[in-house]
Design a protein around this nucleic acid. Sequence first.
DNA 1: ATTGGATGGTCTGAAGCGTACCGTCGGTCG
DNA 2: CGACCGACGGTACGCTTCAGACCATCCAAT
Lengths: 183, 183
Amino acid sequence: MPSPLPPSAYVVLGLLGQRSSLTPYQLDKRIRESIGHFWAFPRSQLYAEAGRLIRRGLIAEQRETEGRRRRTLSLTDAGRTELDRWLDTPSASSTEIHDEGLLRLFFLRTDGDCTDAIVSLATEQLEAHRRQLAHYQDLVAARGLPPGSPQRATLELGLRMEQMFIAFWTEAVASPDDLPGRD
Amino acid sequence: MPSPLPPSAYVVLGLLGQRSSLTPYQLDKRIRESIGHFWAFPRSQLYAEAGRLIRRGLIAEQRETEGRRRRTLSLTDAGRTELDRWLDTPSASSTEIHDEGLLRLFFLRTDGDCTDAIVSLATEQLEAHRRQLAHYQDLVAARGLPPGSPQRATLELGLRMEQMFIAFWTEAVASPDDLPGRD
DNA sequence: ATTGGATGGTCTGAAGCGTACCGTCGGTCG
DNA sequence: CGACCGACGGTACGCTTCAGACCATCCAAT
């Protein structure tokens, strides 16, 4: 392991670990339908990451020469080793939560009456998070994700996250002069 | 508003909106002690962002010519306008949650017994989140953040976030064969 | 036969981010 | 007093991240 790999590298390795061989396009699709909900990995990045991993010898590429010139990726032994190593190495970095609504709340002027502003922010955020919650619920219902699978659990965390945001903003709407956090 | 500004731009504008004039260094300090807990804005980025905002005419810089050559930043009228506009524009982007532990969970092989792996991941994550929770609690206690202020509310969301993660990983430790999400 | 959508890939420019590095200032301790 | 140390204040560089536009292929339905 030359230098610690960025998260997107492990996304590629991880997905290849699940099904032996995939094209970057398929990686993209799978990601958009799963972890992509909380952590965006743009398509172009996957192609770039694949290139880097090939150079490091962690994945192998088999490429069509004609037609669509598909790149089919698969783990090498070194890649499998690195993936396994990562999977049971305690993570160094802490959780990042990027939420623009939260940022706006933080910067709302506290002096005088920003009450209206807080109520309208909270109302808007509430609606957005309710929509997202409904979307996750649809996903759970639509796909036959086996209960207890990591994939299902990940989605479950998304559900909880949304429920938490909803609770937070609900309290903010209810008592804008006394925002969540009395104690 | 030429093109939509990135979040870091609003962080700079927002902080300057709170106290009329600050150096990038002071921005950095304030951020590290508040929103920096969930959303890292590295120091170098603040200097870069300040440069961009000056070029756009949203902030003004007054610079010492000798000694430490401090850059003192303040909002221009255009900057104040842009900040106010942003503060009551519904946010377009959705919440991003970057958590390496979650990523690892997602990629744990579901076949056979990954039970041990899940338990050790969950245990490790539990400890990390408990530590972070304790840290937030210290902050609330230490600082005299007025209850009901947006700053306090933001920290409160951090507390809830950690509590939610703790609940999630606790369940994972308790029943690794049946991860959170039975229903 | 055309057209349009799903598939598959590339490129570019800007922003994000870590980290190492360099200078200045104010104290304090020998 | 003066050397030093830690807080201040800023810069530079290199990589990663990311959005978006762009291009080409295949297939199926009209």
